[in-house]
Simulated assay, not measured.
Amino acid sequence: MAYAINTPEGTRDRLFAECRERRQVQTALTTLFQRRSYAEVSTPEVEFYDLFLQSGNPMPQESMLKIIDRSGKIMVMRPDCTTPIARVAATKLKAVPLPQRLYYDQTVFRSGQEHKGGSSEIAQCGVELIGAAGRKADLEMVAMAVDALCACGLKQFHIELGHVGFFRDLAGRMDMPAEAMEQMRVLIEGKNFAALGDMLEPYAGQSASTALRRLSRLFGGAEVLDEAERLT
């Protein structure tokens, strides 16, 4: 009996033109980052699982690819770039003056739902602005996002802005278990309207329930800010 030699689910080979196009995008982005005085950092592909628990990373553990080292400690294939870079900033870069402008060009690994066709290997190329606050820092990040898309050749796109503090304030008014709150956050982030409505049904009597139910649909133009103000 012959067996097909395939790649693991969620991975695939990239050949020729796709490799060239991917490299062109990476070069365009990293050139932009360097021109804006961002310095490259690279973190290991494997991190301790505890790092993501202690950091409060909202990524569910079932989406992380886990391995066990020789001592029996649980490790994960790097599921995002921000948490490891925060580790580097808090240790090896703690003596470096703020703000710190860092960029990365790495692959993250995530375990998607079986047979859903998602990718387990995701190329990420981005920046972290550490130790800067206020509107000027926000403007720098938004401008960088716009310029990055333009550098990749895009001409028509939308930038979606949000603030996690709005969700945290509303969620903090709810009397619900921490597990349910995390589930609610995932549903809102994924704009899963139907499931969110079903989940909040038992909490309909709480004052913040209506605003949270509406939160997954609260996107659009500047008029959304007026609606958000009315909801709160």
Results as ranks from 00 to 15, higher is better:
Arg20Asn: 11
Thr107Val: 11
Glu47Tyr: 08
Val76His: 15
Gln26Asp: 09
Ile188Ser: 02
Glu47Ile: 04
Cys19Ile: 11
Ser209Arg: 03
Gly112Val: 00
Gln206Phe: 03
Arg23Trp: 13
Tyr38Gln: 05
Met1Asn: 15
Pro99Lys: 15
Asn192Pro: 02
Pro97Trp: 07
Gln61Glu: 10
Gly131His: 03
Ala95Pro: 03
Cys125Ser: 13
Lys155Met: 15
Ser37Leu: 10
Met181Arg: 14
Ala211Val: 15
Thr210Glu: 09
Asp69Tyr: 01
Asp50His: 06
Leu139Pro: 15
Ala95Gly: 03
Ala178Phe: 00
Leu196Phe: 01
Leu154Ser: 15
Arg217His: 12
Ala145Tyr: 03
Arg214Gln: 09
Ala228Arg: 11
Asn6His: 10
Glu62Asn: 09
Lys92Tyr: 06
Val96Phe: 12
Thr232Val: 07
Thr27Phe: 07
Val164Met: 11
Ala208Phe: 01
Met141Glu: 14
Asn192Val: 12
Ala222Lys: 07
Leu200Asp: 03
Gly131Val: 12
Ile67Thr: 06
Gln113Ala: 08
Met1Ser: 06
Val96Tyr: 14
Pro58Tyr: 15
Ala178Ser: 00
Leu32Thr: 10
Gly131Lys: 07
Leu231Asn: 01
His115Val: 02
Ser207Asp: 14
Leu32Asn: 01
Gly197Ile: 04
Ala204Phe: 11
Thr82Met: 11
Thr31Ile: 14
Val41Thr: 14
Asp138Leu: 11
Gln124Tyr: 01
Asp13Tyr: 09
Gly197Tyr: 15
Glu223Gln: 11
Phe16Tyr: 05
Ser209His: 03
Glu140Gly: 05
Arg135Gly: 11
Gly131Thr: 14
Arg12Glu: 02
Glu128Ser: 15
